[in-house]
Nucleic acid binder design. Structure first.
Length: 512
RNA sequence: GCCCUCAUCGUCUAGUGGACCAGGACGCGGCCCUUUCAAGGCCAAAACAUGAGUUCGAAUCUCAUUGAGGGCACCA
């Protein structure tokens, strides 16, 4: 397992290597999470490397978005950006300085592949010198033509050295560098931590382009060179890479470098068991964040997509430290997992309930403000603070808080007569009940939960009403809703003045 | 077409030849608690894709079939 060596100690080092081509997909985030957990479990390092070798697909600002994703999740990188700087950046800025640094925590940089071009050129040259690669100058059109001919013969097209139109390509003329498959026959095998032993016939591998005509490396060269130079001991990636893995294995062999351990993790699928896409709602963690999910819950949920502690351990709810201590790459499942919004909801509720009241209050503040509820005065903040214990176990997402508390801050619409008339009661009875409630609450020495409940139960008794009959009309009168947090705690947050005022108004409605 | 991968309740999964007429979790249904809604507790329904084979014995091993996914770029 140990591959890199730091200070004489074996070191597990993993990386996440996205392309800056837009929003980070949930499946990619999960792969990154697995990588991070694997590293942290072993006390190792996790870093990020930007694979921007395709200039055409580059999307401005995506590097920043990628780094923000990790920042929000609470995943700290052992190589990469400074989080404080990151938070100060503007949206359209990209490439934070820390990623460009020469090295970080002993990991040699830069961490942006476009800044490592000479490195790839150097190693491509080495391959050519040692007979593992060659120059080729066929144009895209020529290749396309060859492909069409092969298809006409119903053959699978693979570019091979023998198919070159021009041999003896000079280094100074436009060309690409292609890898030679050596040996041409035979089988390339490797062990994948997730997929097990995998074997590919060399005859089915083509002479992959390693350096493009623009001088940029392809993924295949860059990933091998960087993983080696940066001391990656365990490489996790999506299983769509499995088919090209044998080429990477061959390159490692050509170079004479030790292979990192490979783990190809399955995709995350959407509700319809198809690949997750925009049509499935949440496709980036920012959407989840905006929908009121906690990073703790997202991490917990994602870790369970394709991984389980195994060995009879049936735990489902994990803190991040628990995940770090229990995570094991060998327990990653080999089949794709479906993203289940309902399970995420449940886990989010669980993690919300685990928060301290203070913590939850802090997280609610921006959301409540966003909903248009002012929290500028100490009094308003105190109201929220007092409401939190009443709503904590009633939320699946942070957004759920808003309808649970808005009436504590805003006045409500005038209730209808129907809403103020209790079950199996007529309007006169209901009116009398509300009047007596009003008088009772006006005289109550302490406008607090317990004494209020005691007095109100006694009142219901005197009126020969069931608590439910009385409480329901009081709830409607004061909150304007038939679903609220527990009534008396709620009234106490609303305060005596507003409560009495709303009761008076309700009495007025029935008197009319 | 060729190559590769995958296949246990609706979903996430446990399970590595006997302890499995398959365990847990979400969701669903019911009950309890209860001022509404939640939370919590209890109970229930619900799966080894199919077919051969190996074996005294298979969810677990092998093969085939079917289905699903991925790859076959000077994209990652």
């Amino acid at each position: 397992m140990a591959y890199g060596v730091t200070d004489g100690q074996p070191m597990v080092r993993t990386r996440f290597a996205p392309s800056p081509t837009g929003e980070l997909h949930i499946g990619s985030v999960r792969t990154a999470l697995f990588s991070w957990l694997a590293a942290k479990h072993a006390g190792g390092q996790f870093y990020i490397r930007l694979e921007d070798t395709d200039q055409e697909r580059y999307v401005a600002g995506s590097t920043r978005r990628i780094l923000e994703t990790f920042d929000w999740l609470g995943i700290r990188l052992d190589g990469g950006p400074d989080h404080a700087t990151l938070r100060r950046m503007k949206t359209d800025e990209d490439y934070p300085g820390a990623l460009e640094d020469g090295s970080y925590q002993g990991i040699p940089g830069p961490f942006i592949q476009s800044q490592r071009l000479p490195v790839y050129q150097q190693w491509a040259g080495w391959l050519i010198e040692h007979g593992y690669a060659y120059r080729a100058s066929e144009t895209a059109e020529e290749i396309e033509h060859m492909r069409a001919e092969a298809m006409a013969r119903k053959e699978t097209f693979r570019f091979r050295e023998e198919m070159r139109l021009r041999t003896d390509v000079r280094p100074d003329e436009p060309h690409v560098v292609r890898m030679r498959i050596v040996p041409r026959q035979g089988v390339t095998r490797f062990h994948d931590l997730v997929k097990g032993d995998v074997a590919f016939e060399n005859a089915n591998l083509d002479d992959q382009v390693l350096i493009k005509a623009d001088g940029f490396p392809t993924y295949h060269l860059a990933v091998v060179v960087d993983d080696h130079l940066q001391g990656v001991s365990l490489a996790l990636r999506g299983d769509d890479w499995l088919s090209s893995a044998p080429k990477h294995v061959l390159l490692f062999q050509y170079f004479g470098w030790d292979m990192p351990q490979l783990a190809h993790v399955p995709n995350v699928l959407g509700d319809d068991s198809r690949k997750l896409s925009k049509r499935h709602g949440a496709t980036s963690v920012f959407e989840l964040r905006d929908q009121g999910y906690l990073p703790e819950a997202v991490i917990n949920f994602l870790s369970l997509l394709g991984w389980a502690p195994g060995e009879g351990d049936e735990q489902n709810v994990f803190t991040i430290p628990e995940l770090i201590s229990k995570f094991d790459v060998n327990h990653i499942g080999s089949s794709p997992a479906v993203f289940s919004p309902t399970k995420l909801d449940w886990l989010n509720g669980v993690h919300i309930r685990r928060l301290s009241e203070d913590d939850l209050t802090q997280r609610l503040i921006p959301i409540v403000r966003e909903a248009g509820i002012a929290l500028d005065t100490a009094e308003q903040l105190d109201k929220l603070r007092r409401a939190v214990p009443l709503i904590q176990e009633r939320m699946k997402t942070l957004l759920d808080a808003v309808p649970l508390i808005d009436f504590m801050f805003f006045d409500i619409a005038v209730p209808t007569r129907e809403a103020l008339t209790g079950q199996k009661m007529d309007e006169a009875e209901s009116l009398e009940a509300l009047r007596q409630t009003r008088d009772l609450l006006a005289q109550l020495p302490e406008f607090e939960n317990a004494p209020m409940e005691q007095a109100m139960r006694a009142l219901a008794d005197r009126l020969h009403l069931k608590p439910r009959q009385l409480f329901t009309i009081v709830r409607n009168a004061v909150t304007g809703k038939d679903v609220t947090p527990p009534l008396f705690g709620t009234l106490s947050v609303i305060g005596r003045a507003a409560t009495l005022q709303r009761l008076d108004r309700a009495v007025g409605v029935l008197e009319r």
